[in-house]
Amino acid sequence: MDIQSALEQLRPNHLPAPVSIWPLAPGWWIVGGLSLVIIMLAMRFILSRWHKRRYRRRALSTLRKVVKAYEANGNKRQFAHDCNRLLKKVALQAYPRQNIASLNGDQWLVFLSQSSENPQFSDSAAAALGSDRFKPDHELNVDQLHTLTLSWIKKHHA
């Protein structure tokens, strides 16, 4: 027998079966489980935060309606009353009722300033949220009042 005929009699090479991905090694099960727990905790945190801030989103929507109403009728005093009512409503949702419900005038302005760390609540535009809005000679600055209301809704610390 020659070498050529001996080689022809050999069977072809058989490759082993490909390595399967299943079953996973225990380490991968641990990584998968931890990933799932982390995702669930992150979703719980995000949903909780989203629910806690729902009142802010509603307040911003109401503020847009108040601005549209002002643009339609041009009544500055009504705008100041509406902004004050909206801020009080938001404050009652964010803070304990017994601390907020009785505030008015300068106490109300101090609370708004402290809760948002915004010193502009001592300016003349913010005075329209206090008792000055009832004075007939008080001139209201609608743009500043809108800006103050918007910033307090977004930035107050509840």
Rank of each mutant, 00 (worst) to 15 (best):
K65L: 02
V31E: 13
R77I: 06
N84D: 00
K89F: 08
F79L: 07
F45L: 06
G74I: 07
A125H: 01
D106L: 04
R97I: 11
E8W: 08
L34K: 04
V67E: 04
A158P: 09
A69K: 05
H14Y: 15
L129T: 07
L129M: 02
G130K: 01
W50D: 02
N84T: 12
L112R: 07
D106T: 15
A158E: 03
L41D: 08
D2H: 01
S61T: 12
S116V: 03
W152Q: 01
L34Q: 00
C83K: 09
V66D: 03
D137L: 15
H146M: 03
Q4G: 00
H51A: 05
S151R: 07
A25K: 13
H146N: 12
R133W: 01
I3E: 12
N118M: 02
L63Y: 01
D123N: 10
I21G: 12
P119I: 07
R56E: 03
N118R: 06
F111A: 14
Q114L: 00
V90M: 11
V19Q: 10
L92I: 03
I21T: 13
V110W: 06
L140V: 15
L34C: 05
E117Y: 04
F45N: 09
V90G: 14
A101S: 11
L36K: 05
C83M: 08
L148F: 02
R97S: 10
G32D: 14
K88Y: 07
S151V: 05
W28V: 07
I30S: 05
V37E: 00
S151T: 14
I3V: 02
S124R: 09
I39K: 06
L47P: 10
V66E: 04
K154H: 07
C83Q: 13
F111H: 14
M40H: 10
